[in-house]
């Protein structure tokens, strides 16, 4: 649905240019929620603005729904943008218009007639749960309500894609959840493809089907959450399941087992202890619901060197679990597999 290929974006003149996007390529499938996570300054905002060309890439192509936007004339681009909704961190609502007036803005721009505009805007305000606030000005609305108006505005023109620029970053945790749930609901109901950028891992955990990690303008990794979790050494997976520092006892082996899908509810550790007579210590465990599925990571300490534990580890891997040896006692640093 969205295909970004080899996009570079530099700001400033050649000598003092800063590179905001450095050979970024992304694939977002139809109907999924794709999250780009990164810290401030990683280039997230530039990336999302490059999708609807609010920020024109220095080079590379952006294709949305089969249309190569980077090739379009300004007039064609304006038409294409109407199929791409966008919500913003600071909502960007017109202060002089009511909630309904803000929702109607896009329809006015598209030349939709008055009656149809009113009908559509009320319908969409109802969808985001603000039917009773149609006549309220943004100054009279809470942050969460403002973002609902922002979402309604972006959806009024029936876009196929929603771009979310840190839409929940200015909201408290509870409101964040309700907004994310709204996005998820719309995603499911309307089949809307969502590309969101965020610096909060919780956002990715809660709604994303796929994710990419952006750092210094480069994509470090990307893929479906399920596949990322089962990728050894994935930074995203590591940040999804923060287990803290590793401090193994000398001579013992520390492993991390990642569970996802069906393997999450099997009594793996008990089996391990029983079958091999091992004194397994649990150093840490995290279980999360990701994209509606249980997934987790457990850090275990097994007595003996990794060599001595080769058989149980092979057994675990044989069960389809992702097992990473993260410490072997000698290497206190905890070199990751």
């Amino acid at each position: 649905m969205i295909s970004v290929k080899h996009v570079f974006k530099t700001f400033g003149a050649a000598a003092a240019a800063t590179t905001a996007l450095d050979d970024v390529s992304l694939e977002v499938a139809r109907g999924e929620i794709f999250g780009v996570i990164g810290q401030s300054g990683a280039g997230k905002s530039t990336l999302i603005r490059a999708i609807n060309l609010l920020e024109r890439p220095s080079s590379g192509t952006v294709t949305v729904d089969g249309e190569e936007l980077t090739r379009l004339s300004p007039d064609q681009l304006r038409l294409a943008r109407r199929k791409i909704g966008m919500v913003f961190q600071h909502f960007n609502l017109l202060a002089g218009r009511t909630a309904q007036g803000n929702v109607e803005l896009g329809l006015e721009i598209a030349g939709v007639g008055g009656t149809e505009r009113r009908r559509r805007s009320l319908e969409i305000l109802d969808l985001v749960g603000l039917a009773d606030k149609a006549g309220a000005y943004p100054a009279e609305l809470s942050g969460g309500q403002k973002q609902r108006v922002g979402i309604a505005r972006s959806l009024a023109g029936n876009p196929k894609i929603l771009l979310s620029d840190e839409a929940t970053s200015a909201l408290d945790p509870e409101t964040t959840r309700s907004i994310l749930d709204l996005v998820k609901t719309i995603n499911v109901q309307v089949g809307l493809t969502v590309l969101l950028i965020t610096h909060e891992m919780d956002v990715v955990k809660r709604v994303c089907d796929s994710a990419a990690m952006l750092e210094h303008g480069r994509i470090l990794e990307q893929g479906s959450i399920v596949s990322l979790i089962s990728t050894p050494g994935s930074r995203l997976a590591h940040e999804l399941f923060p287990l803290g520092e590793i401090a193994p006892h000398p001579g013992n082996t520390v492993i991390e087992i990642t569970f996802s899908g069906g393997s999450a509810d099997r009594p793996v550790i008990a089996q391990l202890a029983r079958s091999y007579g091992l004194d397994v210590s649990i150093l840490g465990a995290v279980v999360e619901t990701i994209g509606g599925n249980q997934a987790g990571r457990t850090r275990l300490e097994l007595p003996g060197t990794p060599l001595a534990n080769a058989a149980p580890i092979a057994d675990l891997r044989g069960q389809g679990l992702l097992v990473e040896i993260v410490g072997d006692g000698a290497a206190m640093e905890g070199a990751r597999a």
Partner: peptide
């Protein structure tokens, strides 16, 4: 006027 508002209108395809 907040430049974000201009951006929002641009994202809606405004001339």
């Amino acid at each position: 006027v907040d430049s974000g508002l201009v951006e929002a209108a641009e994202s809606l395809g405004a001339t």
